[in-house]
Each structure stands twice: as C-alpha cells, then as structure tokens.
Design a binder for these strands. Sequence first.
DNA 1: TATGAATGAGTGTTCATTCAT
DNA 2: TATGAATGAACACTCATTCAT
Lengths: 221, 221, 221, 221
Amino acid sequence: MTVPGRGEASTDGQSTDGPNADGPSTGGRGAGRPRSPEKDTAILKAALELLGSHGYTRMSLSQVAEAAQVSKSTIHLRWKTKADLLTAALAALRMADAPPASGDTRTELTAILEDFAATVERVRGMALIGTCLAEEAHTPELLTLLRERTVLPRRALLRHVLEQALEQGEIRADADLEAAVSALLGPYYADYMAGSAPRSGWAGTAVDLVLAGLRPKREQG
Amino acid sequence: MTVPGRGEASTDGQSTDGPNADGPSTGGRGAGRPRSPEKDTAILKAALELLGSHGYTRMSLSQVAEAAQVSKSTIHLRWKTKADLLTAALAALRMADAPPASGDTRTELTAILEDFAATVERVRGMALIGTCLAEEAHTPELLTLLRERTVLPRRALLRHVLEQALEQGEIRADADLEAAVSALLGPYYADYMAGSAPRSGWAGTAVDLVLAGLRPKREQG
Amino acid sequence: MTVPGRGEASTDGQSTDGPNADGPSTGGRGAGRPRSPEKDTAILKAALELLGSHGYTRMSLSQVAEAAQVSKSTIHLRWKTKADLLTAALAALRMADAPPASGDTRTELTAILEDFAATVERVRGMALIGTCLAEEAHTPELLTLLRERTVLPRRALLRHVLEQALEQGEIRADADLEAAVSALLGPYYADYMAGSAPRSGWAGTAVDLVLAGLRPKREQG
Amino acid sequence: MTVPGRGEASTDGQSTDGPNADGPSTGGRGAGRPRSPEKDTAILKAALELLGSHGYTRMSLSQVAEAAQVSKSTIHLRWKTKADLLTAALAALRMADAPPASGDTRTELTAILEDFAATVERVRGMALIGTCLAEEAHTPELLTLLRERTVLPRRALLRHVLEQALEQGEIRADADLEAAVSALLGPYYADYMAGSAPRSGWAGTAVDLVLAGLRPKREQG
DNA sequence: TATGAATGAGTGTTCATTCAT
DNA sequence: TATGAATGAACACTCATTCAT
C-alpha cells in the first residue's frame, strides 16, 4: 500500500536492491549493449501487478514475461530468483509523500489516512498485504520490505503530525503516540476484514475518535 | 483467527459445505462401508494447520494426506477440489465464545480483545488471514468464510458490550458503534503491520482510547 | 558391459535399490492399484539405452518417458531423481554368467573374454563406461555400480579360472593374479582407445600372452 | 592422458581447427584490432580443465568465460559452437614426449608407461577419456582427437621400443606388436575400472609379463 | 575486437486430479 | 470405502547462441 508514485511501479535510482549491477566484470565500465531501462520498469510493474492480483505462488514468471513483453531469460538476467524479483518489485514501491501542511491537525491527519486508503485501493493493496503476510514464513523479505517502504513511512508521517499537536497542547502530554498511530490506521484494516463496503468518512471518524480520546484533561472538565 | 475451540479444528455438524453428501451409492445409511468421521476431522485439522503455516498455494494435498495419515484419494473422495477442502477447513473454525459477563464495560471489552489476540497467535492467524486476503481474487470463499466464522462473531460480541454501555449512558448516544468496533480491533492489525513485537497492553490502551473518545459530552464539561 | 541377460535390461527381484517400495504406509500391505511391472522394466530399459547412446546429462527424462511409453510423472513416482533412476538402471544390469566349464584353461579364459566383449558391444558398453567415468566427480554411484555389477563379477570369474590353473601347476606359483586379470581384460580397453576396428582374435592373443608370461620356470628351461 | 606439456594446455600453431581464421573483416593482418592470443590460450586452457572436471555437457560456456576472464561472446567470436571450442581444446593437447633412451628395453617401456599414468592423473585423464567415450555418438571428433593427439603417439613410442627389442632378438620374431602394445597399456585401464587404488608397480609388472610372454622360444627350452 | 543484453528451447521436478484395484 | 498408480500441465531456472552497442 502507499506505494507507486502515480499508479505506476517506478524503480527509484538510489535503490540498492535493483537489477543486478554485476556482469562478469571486465574492467571497462560501460562496455557492451546497455540494459534496457524500459524493460526494467515494465518487468517490475508487471511483477507488482501480478503479485497483487494472483499472489506470490500463483503468479508465474511466464506471466510476468508475457505482461512485460519480455522473455523469461531477460528477467533472470536481472534477478536471480523469483523471490529476488518480487523483492525488488516491492522495494520499488514509493514511500509516502508528505501531506500538504495545512496547520490544522484534524485536516492533516485525515488527509494522510485518505491518501493511505486511496493508495491501497489503487494497487489492490490488501491482496498485496495478504500475500506478504501469507509468505511471511517462507519469504520474510516481502513483509519486511512492505513495512519499510510503505507502512513505516506512513506511520512516521502520522506520528509527526501528532507530535506537533502535542506540542501545541491539543493532545494530552502523556499520550502514547504509537498507540495513537495504530488507532488511526487500524480501523482501515478492521473494516476491510469486516468485509462490508468501506465506510465512507471512516478517516474523519477515526481522527475524531482519537483526538477526542487524547484531549487534555483540563479541556474535559 | 478466533478459531478452533481448544486449539483443535472441529467439524461442526450443521455445516452445509462439509464432506460431499452426494456419493453415487451413499444415500445416507445404505450399502458400503460408512465414511470414517475420524478421517474427516483429521483431514480438516491438517488442512487448516497447513493453510496457516504454508499458505494456500504452497501447501499440497500430499502434505495434508501425510499429516492426516490418509491417502490423497481419500481426500478427493470427500471434497472435489483443493478449494473445496480448504473452504471446509475454514468453515470448521469455531465461533468466538461469549466472554464472562463481568458487568464492567472496560473489563469486558479488554477481555474480548485479549482473547482475540490469543486466538490469532495460537493458529498463526495473521498468516491465515494473509492467505485469505491473497486468495481473494481467486478463491473468494476463503475470505468470506473467515469473515463469517471468525471476524463477524467477534465484532458482534464487541458491539453487544458497547450497546449495553450506551444504554447505561457510558457512551454518547450518537456514537457510531461500527466505527468503534473497528477502532477496538484495528490497532491489533496495525501493530502487526508495523512489525515490532506486539505492544503489551495494547488492548487496554485501545479500550481506554475508545471509551474516552466516546464519553458523553456532559461528562466532559 | 557384462550386462543384461539377453540384450534386455531386467530388474532382478532381489535388488535393494529398485523402485521405491514405500507408499504413505497405510498398514495394509497390498492396497490400491498395483504398480505395473511392465512399466518398471520398460523405463529401466529405455533409461539404460539412452544412457549408453546419449550419456547422462544429454539424455532427458522426457526421452525416457517417451521411449518407455509412460508419463514423466510415472518415472518420478518410482525414482525420486534422475540419478536415482539411472543408478537403478545400472543396478539392473545382469552379473556375468559363469562360463561353461570345459576343463581347459585357455578355452575358458578366452570364452570369458569373448563374452565380455560381446556384452560390451551389445549395449554400447564403452559409451556407458565413458558416461560413468565422466560422471565420476558428480555422480560417483554410477561408476561404483558399474564396478560392482559388471566389472568385479567378471574379474572374479577370470580369477577363479586362474586359481584353478595355478593349482594344477599351469601357472607359476608366485604369479600376481590380479595383475594377470588386468592383463587379460586390459587389451580390450586399450584397443578401443586405439580406435581401429577391434582386432579379431584379441582374446586368444591376450590369453596366450598371459599364459606364456606366467608359465612356470621349470617349463621354460 | 599424455596431454598438456607442463600441466598447461598450449595452442599449437599448426593446428587447423584452432580459432576461426575467417572473420568477415579479418583477412590475416588488415584492419581492426588483432585478436588477443592470450585470450585464445586462456580460453582453451579453461575449456580443457572444465572438460576434465565437469564433462562435456555439464560444463557451460559461462564457466569457461568466467575462468578465462573473458565474455561469452568472445568465445563465440573464435569458435562457432561449443563442440568447436572443445575440439580445439583437445587439439591443443601436447603429444607424448620421447623417453630418454636408456638402451634397456624393460627400463624404457616402464618409463613410458609410468609417464603415461602420471600424465593421466595430472589432468583427471580418465574423466576426460570418459567424456570423449560418452560423447562418441554425438561429437565423435572428441574421441578422434584424443586418439590422434594422445593415444596414438604414446602407442607409437611403445611400438618403437618393441621393434628395437625385436631386432635385438629379445622378442620372438612372430610377435604381434600391436597386441603387445595393448597388453602394456591395457592393465592401466583395467585397474582403473576395477576401482581399487592403483596397484603400485603395475607398469613393471605389465612389462615383465609381456616380455616374458614374448620371449623367443629358444630361450625357453 | 569485445562486450553484455536478449532470447527460445529445454531441464528436472511438483502438483491436483483421475483411474484401476 | 479406501488405496496407490498414473497422468498432463505447469513451474523456476539454465544454456548455447544471436543481437546491438
């Protein structure tokens, strides 16, 4: 979830687990035919989509190859194993963007949550999350990457807003901010598990509940 | 999650999607050796365990057969396909037990949440949930059953306690109880996704936050 | 070489490394459909032929399956891996038959050697030997089996005749019989490596040379 | 066997099946960068070593390329196919060296045989021989080259010594010298196939047996 | 010349399912 | 009923070779 910039998986230049950078090492830097970057991205995009729609084990490299208009070997040239490819695909997920600072705590929190939900829905995020959870025992890197790339950045954003609110006295001083972050995001998961159509306005409702629950004592009496 | 009564999968008699009742020669009693019910339960138990530990596609019917001390054909004799078997296995999950009524809202909610967490952890529940989420596109019955058998009963329990609290004026009258239920359960999922060890006391914290957030206005001013 | 009885690979009942005898173990001995012994032998025969004609790595299980009119899975049901199959195929090679006892040392030795050559030629034996030698580093069982099943029994036969000759004083008492055996068999290999058509009468020539070389001293002076 | 001069594969100038001389733009001298001869030899050396250690089909051109510090394409630039490369590698094997003439038949024959054994062992020769035998049906050039480059020269050496012995009356006049050569070399192969550790002194024993077997009649009576 | 990218054919193996006993 | 044999389709991955730089 959170995820690709504009609905697209995009390799990010500074990634360290991108395509193999290592050939047989002939000294010369740029010898030979350069690797097509279009294919890189097409493969990662296809892999991510199939990961969401079919799950790790049900998707096949043949499917990726076909979707990316590439031969299977071209995939293996870049990533040694299926796990490597899908790890890279997840790693290419974009971090969360900072929200437009509005100055209003409620507005900012709600915006972050709604962006979160929108991103999840855009990439079949719950299926993707499910895949990573299901594979935790077998390919733990997937869940780890999902956390690092999408969950934790989003949580950091929320926490930052809450910290500002705390400084401004909108939140009680002894509040457990990690718990608050989980209380903000949690309802999305819980609603999904409940299965009914997403409650409209869930984000606002969650923010209201958390802010009300954390309101300083003096305001209450 | 929630799940098997005493750590055991148990077929429940009234299930309608249990073993095939329609063998060509098996009317109800009738000719031939009757199907061994021990094998039924052994198969379902093994299937459910493997579903949690390996995931839908990674588990194999051979593994189930071996774990249940049965031949593969014996499985197919009862359930036509792999999906049928696993659907039946999920259907055998036990509903949530009612909590001991203590009369205290906070205590009762916390107890339900802690039981929820304990049950999830006992059966590698997050992996199981992940599997159902991952398979949603391909085998939606799994997620549906998970909801019906485990998620919704648990939610009903929570909602019932909240309704009593509302009647007793502990909660503001216009509270959105579905949202409240999600706010109670949600942090568990959110914490799991965050990845760090489960926050101890998360249940109490969540209950406190929700009850504080829903406290009637007059108490606040 | 040495090899299959009448030009056919034949599983021998007492073999301990034949097809997997182990099913899921259900207690009952002969439950279920019995494994077709025709397929067993067809597979082993095809495997052995392909091993000789294509070599270990160049032959494929698909080829074996096709030649044996069987599905690939049927092969894997019986032998877990390619190496297992080919090991079994080699193990099915028949030991050397005892020669008809003629009472004459020269005649008996020559008969054994000529039978040896005939058997080798019948099964493309030098290619088979080559395969086992080539695979020694990677699949040493092949060479080991070839030795046990074909080389050593043949040597034992030759040695037995030489021992009788020694008892009857036809051979000098201090003769190194192992060396003599190698001197009898060796020319066949050496001739093959030399490449020209097999020297006719090689066996008789070799026997003559060895018997002459080992003749007791007193006969010489 | 026999094989590389000082444990090294060495391309020999007069080979006719060495690197392609017929590149489209390379007449002999002419335009473009000349092909690096160091790479030629590095590739051939690596190929020969891998041929001995892995066998024809199990070795890969990637491995050769890596061992020779060269790209795969560089190999294909010189030799069109894998078979071509390995043929060339075998062609680069050095012939047998003439033994130091001692004047004594037994000593000279033994020296040749011991040198033969030493050379074989130095380059995993039996595996190499096995590979050529195994590939005989598919790539007969390999066995042919092995014969021409290593087997036949060695046999010629032995034969030459035997001819001298014959002239000097040490060997009976009607002796079959080809058979004698095979009787000298053969035990090495036979011993290897028997599998036990190489009999020490095998060479002397073989020479003694042959010389005794071929001793002129008059000496015997 | 020399490189690395790209590919199509092929490998051994696994699996859910059907068949024969 | 229950078993084990048998199968076809699919899988991840490797390789010799050709293409573009």
